[in-house]
Amino acid sequence: MKPQDIIKEKNSLWIFGYGSLVWNPGFAYKRSKIGFIKGYKRRFWHGDDFYRGDKEKLARVVTLVEDQEACTWGVAYEVTDSQIEESLQHLNMREVVLGGYITKTVEFIPKEKGQGPLLALVYIATSSNPIYLGPASEKDIAAQIASCSGNKGHNIEYLVRLVEFMRLYCPEVEDEHLFSIEAALLNIYSDCGGIKPADQKAILVGAT
């Protein structure tokens, strides 16, 4: 589904974010809701050669992988009227042109009680993308994250912010993949005697 097809005859649209969009959507919106989508698991399987890495050293960022038994937590943003086209133009450049993501429509289930499911647009990177990295061990992913930096900052910051979101807004959810990579990264820094990623003052300097 193309963004230009989505905006036809619509005055409201929900956009689901599960990576950097949870803390930095980068577009104006009417309201937001925390919740989840079913049938997908979040994985650090996509490469990034611009925001958190470069052409010489690809960073690791998240995408969604189909899994009927899984669910992924994040934030859905409602954009209305002129915000729709503006947000899609922004995301088309950020996620499609620079990130290599495609768009799909999914059912979003808000965490707030009494709220029914909503249809939302989501951006997903697939294995057909040239910079798609695919699966690796948590230790190898953590090592790659520890060594990469791009135009938006260090790859560690990306991981830390996602961990912070899950622990703050979804404390009841055990995101095994995400937390295992965090643990592996902590072990790397502990073994090296360096600053641990938990020291946010050091890691998030200059964060946007």
Rank of each mutant, 00 (worst) to 15 (best):
K2S: 09
D5P: 15
I6A: 04
I7C: 06
K10E: 13
L13V: 13
L13F: 14
Y18T: 06
G19A: 14
S20Y: 02
L21P: 00
L21Q: 07
W23I: 04
N24P: 07
P25T: 10
P25R: 10
P25H: 05
P25G: 08
A28K: 13
Y29S: 11
R31Q: 13
S32E: 09
I34V: 09
G39P: 09
Y40H: 13
R42T: 10
R42P: 07
F44D: 05
W45Y: 14
W45T: 09
W45G: 12
H46T: 12
D49F: 12
R52A: 06
K55S: 15
K57M: 14
R60L: 01
V62S: 01
T63S: 13
L64A: 06
E66W: 03
Q68C: 10
C71P: 00
W73L: 01
W73Y: 09
V75D: 02
V75P: 01
A76M: 00
A76N: 04
Q83K: 07
Q83R: 05
E86W: 07
L88E: 09
L88M: 09
L88C: 05
Q89N: 11
L91S: 04
N92P: 00
R94P: 13
V97L: 14
L98N: 13
G100E: 00
T105M: 07
P110V: 04
K111I: 07
Q115W: 08
Q115S: 11
P117C: 10
L118H: 09
A120V: 13
L121S: 07
Y123V: 10
I124H: 06
T126L: 04
L133G: 07
L133Y: 05
K139V: 15
I141A: 03
A143Y: 08
I145Y: 01
G150A: 05
G153P: 03
G153S: 01
V160H: 00
R161H: 02
L162R: 05
F165C: 05
M166I: 14
M166E: 04
R167D: 09
R167A: 09
R167G: 00
C170Y: 02
C170N: 14
E174Y: 01
E174F: 05
H177K: 11
L178F: 03
L178R: 03
F179R: 01
F179T: 06
S180H: 05
S180I: 11
S180Q: 14
S180A: 13
S180G: 15
A183N: 10
L185I: 05
L185C: 02
S190V: 02
C192Y: 11
G193S: 13
I195A: 00
A198N: 00
A202V: 08
I203R: 01
T208P: 00
